[in-house]
Design a protein around this nucleic acid. Sequence first.
DNA 1: GTTCCTGCAAAAAGTTTGCACCTTA
DNA 2: TAAGGTGCAAACTTTTTGCAGGAAC
Lengths: 143, 143
Amino acid sequence: MAAEGKRNTRQRDVIVDIFFERGVDGHLSLQELLDLVQEVEPGVGFATVYRTMKLLTDAEVAHERRFVEGQTRYELADFGEHHDHLICTRCGHILEFEDPTIERRQREIASDLGVRITHHRHEIYGVCVDLDACNRRLESASA
Amino acid sequence: MAAEGKRNTRQRDVIVDIFFERGVDGHLSLQELLDLVQEVEPGVGFATVYRTMKLLTDAEVAHERRFVEGQTRYELADFGEHHDHLICTRCGHILEFEDPTIERRQREIASDLGVRITHHRHEIYGVCVDLDACNRRLESASA
DNA sequence: GTTCCTGCAAAAAGTTTGCACCTTA
DNA sequence: TAAGGTGCAAACTTTTTGCAGGAAC
């Protein structure tokens, strides 16, 4: 796993394990990740989590996401696949979507405007239609 | 213009004038705006530009954009209209686009996933196909 | 025994805010 | 002259880095 020129340490094991455990739709902030790590391995520093996530990001194993200002979250990359996000600004729930029609139009637009696409960022923000579910998530988040 | 409960000062005049002068595709950072303002009116502080842009943003006259980490840029709102952005990561050139097909798919997707859209963020990143033009912009930016 | 990693604490970078003084209406 | 606005500098927030001690190979 981390055997790509990098050393295998106890801290990294725990960090990577916890991060992977969450899967593709676990969008964790550094602080949340640190808190989880410290439950297992107290004493781990913020800087170690930061540097480990940077390694994963550089290796394209994780993606940095910033849905909210001043808060970077990390998501496990889903190899080969690609998806965009739909975020409820009320409860913070994050849904994922993938749409070939939009992808195609993007390529056409970029081509028309004379740009070769490297990547994109497409986020839709809104509020859950199911307010009960939204409220439940809101409460469990603040609990 | 600024006659919406707010006072009309020399500083605000200059800041707003310069900001409007740039039009919809003038994507200025606070620092760039401050530099331009100080050419006309030395002594204006960063905080004043900051607070003025915040007023404009709250009044929906300006939009805050963050294409690059740790750098907020302000864009004049184009009333009624809506557009998204295509950014060259090499020279920083910002193009705008608007696509009904994408907008429609967005609404369908959000509806399917049970979310009522409030706004969205769609940015395409890439590199200019016309490298000569890209290089010229790169040079003039560092000059 | 090197080389790399960790934890701490300090540095950066950008954004906000408190406060005393100055302007506007 | 009362309500607001300005400029300065300090406070904040989040991310990044230097360094001395400690692990991994």
